[in-house]
């Protein structure tokens, strides 16, 4: 099963409406992704690089099943779940930390019982202690971030999608979370990862995809793709 594609994209294009204001009356469209084709295989860790606005997040949303393409097609292996590990998804200020972890965990695809069974680990990882039963509105930004990370971290999914979430909080917590996440990715998971960090990409991903202006510029070995990607900066803006 090792080489079987878990996600495959065929000439995928995705357009956003041209302008929000009065857009239902306009036919204007902005193509955020154009003619993208690639496959992701089981157990693979794939990195996505590109400049700001290149279409990386749009691509992740597609891979998470949040949106669907306007042209071309995307197919998932039906027995697998792909989840964008979003931090603090669905958090509500008036609920306690524990209730927020449950709600957020359920929105990320876990059953309530599943989240409850992992609650002790979530509390431990977030380092919140007794604060877990206090309303979220009493939390500092850092505490919220830690709870968000811990909940996402313990979300069980087959294909992990990550948008630069490898580090949150202060230097100590950031280092710890990054190590934990790397460990998790190393273990066995299929993962797709957007990052601007050379170290993260080179450490974790054997394969890189480079997106520019919504088009797939290069797909291949990380060292080579990264070199070309960096080279493009010297050639000036695109």
């Amino acid at each position: 099963m090792k080489d079987k594609a878990v996600i495959s994209l065929k000439q995928v294009g995705l357009a956003y409406p041209g302008s929000t204001k009065g857009f239902i009356f306009s036919r204007e469209k902005f193509w955020a992704l154009k003619d993208i084709s690639f496959e992701v295989t089981q157990g693979e860790v794939l990195g996505i690089v590109g400049r700001n606005g290149a279409g990386k997040s749009t691509l992740l949303n597609l891979l998470a099943g949040i949106t669907t393409p306007d042209t071309g097609s995307i197919s998932f292996r039906p027995d697998l779940r792909s989840t964008l590990l979003s931090l603090q998804a669905g958090f509500e200020a008036n609920l306690t930390g524990k209730e927020n972890a449950i709600l957020s965990g359920m929105l990320l695809g876990m059953r309530r019982k599943e989240v409850l069974s992992k609650m002790k680990q979530i509390v431990d990882l977030s380092g919140l202690g007794a604060f877990i039963d206090k309303p979220l509105r009493t939390y500092s930004t850092g505490m919220r971030a830690r709870l968000g990370f811990a909940t996402a971290y313990y979300t069980d999914t087959d294909i992990m999608l990550l948008d630069e979430i490898l580090s949150v909080g202060d230097a100590y917590f950031a280092k710890m979370t990054q190590e934990r996440m790397e460990e998790r990715i190393y273990s066995d998971k299929t993962a797709i990862l957007v990052s601007h960090s050379e170290k993260v990409m080179k450490d974790l991903c054997p394969r890189l995809i480079w997106i520019e202006n919504g088009e797939l510029k290069q797909d291949g070995d990380t060292d080579e793709v990264w070199r070309n990607y960096r080279q493009s900066f010297k050639e000036g803006p695109v």
Binding site: E92, N94, L95, E99, I102, L103, M106, G109
Partner: peptide, 20 residues
């Protein structure tokens, strides 16, 4: 799973509202 979300979310909205 979605039914579970519906009820949990509805409960959380009611709770939030009371807390405000």
């Amino acid at each position: 799973h979605y039914t579970e979300i519906i009820f949990y979310k509805a409960w959380s909205v009611l709770k939030s509202e009371c807390g405000r």
